[in-house]
Nucleic acid binder design. Structure first.
Lengths: 239, 239
DNA sequence: TTCGATTTGTTCGTATGTATT
DNA sequence: TAATACATACGAACAAATCGA
């Protein structure tokens, strides 16, 4: 089964190599000329396919050097998936503290968002994010256990870098897209306590689901943010 | 002065024609072949420039028909600049009710966001947005008076379609990009009354600034949204 | 430091396919 | 049906950046 256009087919095959782990994150994929030979298409068709994958944050081009599989370094994550800024519009990098890690079963909402059966095994992590030392966000993360076999608490706690970087490094799972639903809510007692706010104080609730190639959901989380001094930045139109 | 690359120069000249009003919204621009002849470049270079302008929501391509200047119809606006959804993830189109219209002077924040001197004349509009008949958002809009000469209240109130559609239709000003800062806030007495909420109830505060070609600010507004049943959707990564 | 090989970036031109009018 | 316009694909040449010898 081939795609409707040639460059779509090339794109599909590149993503295939990526999700099989044939080309790993941070590495260069073969040159455009080599890909053209391999797929028996012109170099322009390869460029078309690669350009779309660059626009989708899957690949990164470096003139004179090569085309690389996007690596979820902290900087890269920050530039693509993190848009919480301070009063001056600057991104502040949070430091994570894992509050709890345990195995659980998917409730109805989680199951729907992750494409699982209700009651399917998930890993559930609560984490606190500090900015400038102060607690600013609390996360309640859920990931399908099936996607992360043999993951245990010490490994998760001992990771370096971002959660998505860890997914990529350790399990070969690359997050390429994230959808977030934002709402204002009154802080519950627990959320208020974690963030140093009174219960009932307004907090920003963010319900996020992260996807890998082929729109397969990888993780979902509910985050509460103290937006007294922070703001969520959203740019519409240009990209 | 020409741009670094040819297609960037072509893009610049297309935007030039657009902002001069040479090609108007909704109209087809000359064919790619005609543009190639006019600018003395290959058709591929024109396509490159046009593709970027399509990605930036300035132009719209229709195979077999032509390339058109994006028109701010309600549907188009909804698809590009409006991302507030109901519980089922559906976009609901709001109906506007103008609460007040008056001339004012820019405060410090407004001046900074619109690139004006503090105290510069602005038009200030308060509006209520209803979804399904119920008040769901209140807007406090400010636009530089200099950009909208001779605009008066009856004209503004009597407009049809969206505010940005009106800008385009009446003043040739096309909004191509919008930046929003989102925060959770406790509703003031006034905001609460307008939205049918108790004072202190959590509301989503959105501070938006809209830009036209060349990143010139056109309008800024502060919006409060009742997100008890609505959510603000944000997609990161793919676009 | 210099040089040359490699790789992506830009531009050109042409041919053919597909959708619209 | 015919003309028009965008979409896809091919191939070539040179520019610019990178990187190792």
């Amino acid at each position: 089964m081939s795609s409707r256009t040639l460059h779509a087919e090339v794109k599909r095959r590149i993503i295939g190599s990526l999700s099989e782990g044939r080309w790993k994150h941070g590495e260069a994929i073969p040159s455009e000329e080599a890909l053209a030979r391999r797929y028996k298409v012109s170099i322009g068709t390869v460029r078309h396919a690669v350009s779309e994958l660059v626009a989708e944050n899957v690949l990164v081009r470096r003139q004179g050097s090569g085309t690389y599989v996007a690596s979820h370094t902290r900087d890269y994550m920050l530039s693509v998936f993190f848009w919480i800024v301070d009063e001056k519009g600057r991104k502040e990098l949070p430091r994570v503290e894992v509050l709890s890690y345990r195995r659980a079963r998917a409730d109805a909402g989680t199951a729907a968002r992750l494409g699982l059966q209700r009651g399917a095994p998930v890993i559930r992590v609560r984490a606190l994010q500090r900015i400038g030392g102060r607690p600013m966000m609390v996360d309640d993360i859920r990931m399908p256990q099936a996607l992360f076999p043999a993951l245990d608490e010490p490994t998760f706690r001992g990771r370096e870098g971002t959660v998505y970087g860890f997914f990529q490094e350790r399990f070969g799972i690359t997050v390429v897209r994230v959808v977030e639903r934002l709402q204002a809510r009154a802080a519950s007692a627990a959320v208020g306590a974690a963030l140093g706010l009174a219960a009932g104080a307004p907090v920003l609730r963010i319900e996020r689901t992260a996807y890998t190639y082929g729109d397969a959901p990888v993780e979902t989380r509910v985050r509460y943010v103290n937006t007294a001094r922070l703001a969520y930045l959203s740019q519409l139109g240009r990209h």
